[in-house]
Simulated assay, not measured.
Amino acid sequence: MSEFDELQAVIRRHAAGRQAEQRACEAFLNALYHALRTASGPGLPLNNVTLEFTADPDLRLRPAPAGSVHAAWLRLGLCEVLVRVRRLDGAFVGEYGAGGTFRLDSTTEDDLLVLARTLLRDVTAAYGGDAAPPSHLN
């Protein structure tokens, strides 16, 4: 078997696992979107929140290998926040904005609401000048 054929076989063999991981990360990003829409409390939806899945800017291989980061832009009214997430040891680990990070071992509604409110506070601080400048450039 040539090296090329071996590469193709490995990609085929692990396709189901990669696809399941991608679906899980996209479902997480969708759940975070819904949490952001309800972050203001019951009966107070944020109507100008949208979600747009995108290729991770750091991804250098397609299809994405297992353990890769999946990304989406969350539009929050006048700004957009890139959220990147991947599965690590059963948890969702990710980053958002200029330096926000998270790790969620469970994705209950309350866990997602806490993350959504933290994200909103961090983005507000970044635009309000209360946040430290990012330590690296994109």
Rank of each mutant, 00 (worst) to 15 (best):
A125D: 15
V81A: 09
P65S: 10
R103C: 15
T50P: 00
D111R: 07
R121E: 08
L76C: 05
V81Y: 07
R18K: 14
Y33T: 10
F92H: 14
P42W: 03
G77P: 01
L74A: 04
V85Y: 05
L59A: 15
V83Q: 11
D111I: 00
G94P: 02
L61F: 11
R117D: 05
R75W: 01
T107S: 13
L59Y: 08
T124W: 04
N30P: 00
A125T: 05
A66K: 12
Y96A: 11
Q22R: 15
H136D: 09
V49Y: 00
A66T: 12
T54D: 07
R87S: 12
A27R: 12
R13Y: 01
D122W: 00
H70G: 09
A71Q: 07
L7V: 06
G128Y: 01
E95M: 13
F4A: 10
T101Q: 15
L74C: 04
T38Q: 11
V83C: 10
L76D: 04
R13D: 14
A91D: 15
P65A: 09
G43E: 06
S2A: 04
R87K: 14
A98M: 11
D130G: 04
P133L: 11
R84D: 05
A126L: 08
A91C: 14
V114P: 03
R18S: 14
E26D: 14
R23M: 12
S40V: 00
E6P: 01
A66S: 13
R60N: 14
